[in-house]
Computed example of a mutant assay.
Amino acid sequence: MGTALKLPIIDLSSPEKLSTSRLIRQACLDHGFFYLTNHGVPEEMMEGVLMESKKLFSLPLDEKMVMARRGSRGYSPLYDEKHESSATSKGDSKEMFTFGSSEGVLGQLYPNEWPLEELLPLWRQTMECYYKTVMDIVGKKLLGLVALALNLEENFFEKVGAFNDQAAVVRLLRYPGELNSSGEETCGASAHSDFGMITLLATDGVAGLQVCRNKDKEPKVWEDVAGIKGTFVVNIGDLMERWTNGLFRSTMHRVVSVGKERYSVAVFVDPDPNCVVECLESCCSETSPPRFPPVRARDYFHERFSQTLASYSGSD
């Protein structure tokens, strides 16, 4: 394991929006990661989601494969995801299950795969309640503070069509946690950055998450990020880095095996698929011109999923 990293702790319940946004700005400049506390999502709800997640992953493989990923949603078995940095040709040692909102146009375009009610009677209800609670209580408020941190209007991301409470996706993750018998480092998730705007991660407290604050430096220095009960670990994604012209960097991270099974739940607050991400005026100048061309979110995700997911069909 690496050295321990002390991340900033942001209190989402603080009534001082401007001072909170300044703390978020500094956290995004220094780390690209921070803890979010007093966020309003009940701890028992977070624990319930982790418990139902364990029930799903404990099903026999053939029952899970009935819900296999079609496009971007559904079940992904071990080694389905592989990043350029993957230590082995097999891919990452993790299982995943991804779902999103069933409502509106996006729910029709990208249908969810759900376990049978007779197998997991409380599963869908638990997951849909968690999705709605996180987006209603945390997603909009946090993006508003990020906008203020960038000297923008609080509702900027809504105005440009980025924030759509039906565009987020939730990914349940299980890492078997086995250690390599040869003594080599084993990754449940190899080094990568997230694709979207912001990620909210809840964990079961098992160690393994590491960040590399300078992804361009060699050799890479990895630092451990501990889980704090009842908090979210928040990190900036690649599209936010593009929006901010590299001011807020999407920090590289990974999950290493520590000899113990690990569960986590990631909520990816992604922009609407039709949103065009282009450099913010407040983040470029004559001496700092835009580094990234404009890109439609749908096209960007399609390209990234095609590169990393063996089962991705490209249909969505």
Results as ranks from 00 to 15, higher is better:
Trp114Cys: 08
Arg298Asn: 11
Leu61Thr: 14
Glu113Val: 12
Ser89Met: 08
Arg69Val: 12
Arg254Ile: 08
Leu106Lys: 03
Ala202Met: 00
Gly2Arg: 07
Val134Ala: 06
Asp165Met: 09
Leu36Glu: 09
Ser72Met: 14
Leu36Tyr: 03
Glu44Lys: 09
Pro111Val: 01
Leu120Ser: 03
Ser72Ala: 11
Ser53Thr: 15
Ile9Cys: 09
Thr186Gly: 08
Phe57Gln: 07
Thr203Arg: 08
Leu201Gly: 03
Ala87Val: 15
Trp243Pro: 00
Ser102Ala: 11
Ser101Tyr: 02
Asn214Pro: 02
Asp92Pro: 02
Arg242His: 10
Ile236Phe: 07
Ala167Thr: 09
Gly74Arg: 00
Ser13Lys: 13
Arg249Phe: 07
Pro60Ala: 01
Lys260Trp: 09
Leu12Val: 07
Pro289Ile: 08
Leu12Trp: 05
Glu118Asn: 14
Phe301Leu: 15
Tyr175Lys: 00
Thr126Tyr: 07
Leu23Gly: 02
Val41Gln: 00
Asp165Trp: 03
Gln307Arg: 15
Thr37Ala: 12
Gly237Thr: 04
Ala149Glu: 09
Met127Leu: 07
Leu120Thr: 08
Ser76Gln: 13
Asn214Thr: 11
Glu281Cys: 05
Pro8Ser: 07
Gly237Cys: 00
Asp316Thr: 13
Leu59Ala: 10
Arg174Ser: 08
Glu16Tyr: 13
Phe99Leu: 15
Lys159Val: 02
Ser86Gly: 01
Ala27Cys: 06
Trp114Gly: 06
Lys217Ile: 14
Met65His: 07
Lys140Gly: 15
Asp11Tyr: 06
Asn151Tyr: 08
Ile228Asn: 01
Tyr131Phe: 15
Lys94Ser: 13
Gly40Val: 08
Phe195Gly: 06
Glu117Ala: 12
Leu106Asp: 04
Ala4Gln: 10
Arg69Asp: 00
Asn155Trp: 00
Ser89Tyr: 02
Asp224Pro: 00
Glu154His: 11
Phe248Asp: 10
Ala207Leu: 05
Ile236Val: 15
Ser85Phe: 13
Asn180Ser: 15
Glu113Gln: 15
Gly74Trp: 01
Lys215Asn: 10
Asp270Ile: 02
Asp224Met: 02
Cys212Met: 02
Ser313Leu: 13
Arg73Ala: 12
Arg25Trp: 00
Lys54Ile: 05
Leu247Gln: 14
Val269Pro: 04
Ser102Lys: 09
Ser21Ile: 06
Cys275Ile: 12
